[in-house]
C-alpha cells in the first residue's frame, strides 16, 4: 500500500469530457452513503455489545436492541470480571484472563525468538537441505490442527503437562513456529548477503552478526510477528478447549462457558461485557498498531 494510488477520477484535464457537476456530486454522495452503510454493518455488533453491557437486565428485556442505555450501569462489567459463573467456579473472567496472559506472553516471546533465529539461519546460512527444511516447516502452516489434537493430548500427558498452562505454551510455540519462521525468513532474505560477507571478513560469527546487524534491523518484523502471534494465541479456542482443565482455561474457553451455560437466567449484559473483556487485548493491539496487524495478515496470506 505504499504505492501512490492513481486517481481514476482525476484524469488529465481536457483528456475526458467532464461530467456535469451535479451528476458527479450525486455519485460521490452515493459512494459515501454506501461506505457509511457498510461501516454501520461492521460497527453494529460492537455497538450492540457495548450498549447491552451497560444496560440492566430489565432494560434489555423491555427495550430495543439498538437503543442507548437509559441508565448506564457497570454492574454487568464487574460481574463479568469477577463474579459470574463459568461452570462450577464463580470468580468471573479474571482468573482466566490472567491464564491467557500467562499463556500468551511466553508463547509469543519464545516463538518469535526461535522464528527469528530460524529465519536468519534459513536466509543467510544455507546448507544442503535447508530449503527442504524450510518447505517442511512451512507445510505446518496449513495443517488443520484436528490432525494433531489426539496425539498432542497423549504427549502432553506423557510430559506431565496435560491441562497446564506450560502445556498450552508448548503447543502454541510448536504450531506458531511455521509462521514466525516464514515471517523472519522472508524479511531477512531482503537483507543483502554482502552485509554478512563483510561482517565475516570483519571477524564476526553467526551470533555476532545476528546481534549486531540483523537484530537492530528487525523492529518492524518483530512487531508484525509479535502482533500476529499474540492475536492467534489469545484468540485460540481449539487448543484451549482441548488441552486445558478447570484451573488453566484461557479466556476464550471461559467466555464460551459463560455464554453457553444453560443454568440460571441468561444475563445478556454480563455475556456482552465478558465478550468485550475477552476481545479487548487484541482489539487494543489492532487499534494501536493496525498497520503491522494488516501487514502480518497479508504476509501470512501470501503463503498461508
Amino acid at each position: 500500500m505504499t504505492d501512490q494510488p492513481v486517481p481514476l477520477s482525476a484524469a488529465p484535464a481536457g483528456m475526458r469530457v467532464t461530467r456535469p457537476r451535479l451528476r458527479r456530486m450525486a455519485l460521490r454522495a452515493g459512494l459515501y452513503a454506501m461506505l457509511a452503510g457498510f461501516a454501520a454493518f461492521y460497527l453494529l455488533p460492537l455497538f450492540v455489545m457495548v450498549t447491552t453491557s451497560l444496560k440492566g437486565l430489565e432494560e434489555i428485556q423491555s427495550g430495543s436492541l439498538v437503543a442507548l442505555p437509559r441508565e448506564i450501569t457497570f454492574e454487568a462489567w464487574s460481574k463479568a470480571w469477577s463474579g459470574t459463573c463459568t461452570g462450577i467456579q464463580c470468580e468471573g473472567l479474571r482468573p482466566f484472563f490472567w491464564n491467557s496472559v500467562a499463556m500468551a506472553v511466553p508463547a509469543v516471546i519464545l516463538s518469535t525468538l526461535i522464528g527469528a533465529l530460524n529465519g536468519y539461519a534459513l536466509s543467510h546460512w544455507r546448507f544442503r537441505g535447508s530449503n527442504i527444511l524450510f518447505g517442511a516447516i512451512l507445510f505446518g502452516c496449513f495443517l488443520p490442527f484436528q490432525v494433531v489434537l489426539m496425539p498432542m493430548a497423549r504427549v502432553l500427558g506423557l510430559l506431565g503437562l496435560a491441562g497446564s498452562i506450560p502445556g498450552l505454551v508448548l503447543v502454541h510455540v510448536v504450531y506458531g513456529l511455521g509462521f514466525t519462521t516464514l515471517f523472519f525468513r522472508n524479511f531477512y532474505v531482503t537483507v543483502p548477503g554482502e552485509l554478512v560477507r563483510a561482517a565475516k571478513i570483519d571477524g564476526a560469527g553467526f551470533f555476532r552478526i545476528f546481534a549486531s546487524i540483523f537484530l537492530p534491523l528487525s523492529l518492524p518484523i518483530v512487531t508484525v510477528t509479535v502482533i500476529w502471534q499474540f492475536t492467534n494465541v489469545w484468540n485460540d479456542f481449539l487448543f484451549g478447549v482441548s488441552f486445558s482443565q478447570a484451573g488453566s482455561q484461557p479466556v476464550t474457553v471461559a467466555l464460551n462457558n459463560i455464554v453457553n451455560s444453560t443454568t440460571g437466567v441468561k444475563e445478556y449484559n454480563v455475556d456482552m461485557a465478558a465478550a468485550i473483556i475477552a476481545g479487548l487485548p487484541t482489539l487494543g493491539v489492532y487499534v494501536l498498531a493496525g498497520k503491522y496487524f494488516i501487514r502480518g495478515l497479508t504476509a501470512g496470506a501470501v503463503k498461508g
Binding site: F38, A39, Y42, P45, L46, T231, W234, N235, D236, F237, T252, L255, N256, A275, I276, A278, G279, T282, L283, V285, Y286, V287, G290, F293, I294, L297
Partner: peptide
C-alpha cells in the same frame, strides 16, 4: 471494516 479480524471467533 477490518477490526472484526482482530477478534476471537468466540467473541
Amino acid at each position: 471494516y477490518l477490526y472484526p479480524m482482530a477478534l476471537s471467533m468466540i467473541v
